[in-house]
């Protein structure tokens, strides 16, 4: 029972992180029908940004500002840097290809991925860097069903939920959200209404990438280690979550993220860590066979 609660919390935290990454894939796919394979790298850069902000503020040893302020700064900086990176990627690697073949942006995305991984390796080396959260934050967490829960995980989970709610409101209630949905549904008609599609796409990339940046800091806080290869697998998981939930669907991405997170954490605990990824893969295949549009998806993945 104790193990179960522990794994439930772990799974939810992990799921929250995957959901944030998945949301990025889904937003971008929804608007551009583009699988942004470089999204994982954006997340990795977010994790690095958070790390360097922490170091800049004296962490993990002796923070020169209150710890809460440091963490806020880490999140904000990571979101802004990742957001801008996403915008840059769109501008230089995808926009010139908008009228090209469908395969071209995918290849370009692979190129971006490779470039970013190695640029970070060049600039910061292959040394493993650690957030080392316990050195500046070691409070006892709340008790849930008799189990001590790590407060960092609670923070991450709450923050993920806040971001998801915020995003949902942004998409459903604001003018930008309406514009975004209009562009997603019929780009040409949106242009006719005077919507500056490029501006909408830039904003979508910013929001999607900022979410990935936040996810990067979250993973750093919970699992400590960051390196230049961390983006690939996380990106893959987030991507799986997006597809399982139904790509293009925002609640789908959240559901998919939680599902993949829970599957991983329970497989790790009860079966074997080796099978965690394999099982998510099987879930992906299963969903694609039984419900090709994903659990909550409404649109087919390819517009034909």
């Amino acid at each position: 029972m104790e193990l179960f609660v522990q794994q439930l919390v772990n799974g939810l935290t992990l799921g929250g992180v995957y959901a944030l990454i998945a949301l990025g894939y889904t937003l971008i796919y929804g608007v551009l029908q583009l699988l942004n394979f470089a999204h994982g790298e954006v997340y990795m850069v977010g994790a690095f940004t958070g790390f360097f902000v922490m170091v800049g503020l004296g962490g993990p040893g002796k923070p020169i500002v209150p710890v809460w302020l440091m963490i806020v700064a880490m999140f904000l900086a990571a979101m802004v840097v990742s957001g801008l990176l996403g915008v840059g990627i769109e501008r230089f690697a995808y926009r010139p290809l908008r009228e090209s073949t469908r395969i071209a942006p995918l290849i370009s995305a692979l190129g971006v991925s490779l470039f970013l991984q190695n640029a970070v390796l060049l600039l910061f080396g292959s040394r493993v860097r650690s957030y080392d959260t316990p050195r500046y934050w070691s409070g006892a967490g709340p008790q849930v069903a008799g189990v001590q829960v790590n407060p960092v995980r609670i923070l991450v989970l709450v923050l993920a939920i806040i971001l998801m709610v915020g995003l949902t409101r942004l998409v459903e209630k604001t003018a930008f959200g309406r514009g975004m949905r209009a562009v997603a549904y019929d780009r040409d008609a949106a242009v006719m209404m005077g919507i500056d599609v490029n501006k909408v796409i830039v904003l979508v990339f910013f929001v999607a990438s900022a979410l990935a940046g936040a996810a990067g800091v979250m993973v750093g806080l919970v699992f400590f280690n960051v390196n230049n290869y961390m983006g690939f697998l996380a990106g893959l998981k987030g991507f799986t979550a997006a597809v399982v939930g139904g790509i293009g669907s925002i609640p789908g991405a959240m559901l998919g993220g939680l599902l993949i997170g829970l599957i991983e954490s329970f497989t790790t605990a009860y079966v074997s860590a080796n099978f965690a990824s394999v099982l998510s893969f099987l879930v992906l295949i299963l969903v694609m066979l039984l419900k090709p549009r994903g659990l909550l998806g409404t649109r087919a993945i390819v517009k034909v």
Binding site: A175, R178, R181, A182, D186, A189, M193, G194
Partner: peptide, 22 residues
């Protein structure tokens, strides 16, 4: 536009609001 090109999954109100985008 030809064939109207409404944003079919959105509500009537939202369609009108998009018209006011600029």
């Amino acid at each position: 536009p030809e064939n109207r090109r409404l944003f079919a999954p959105m509500t009537v109100l939202e369609n009108l609001q998009i018209g006011a985008w600029v």
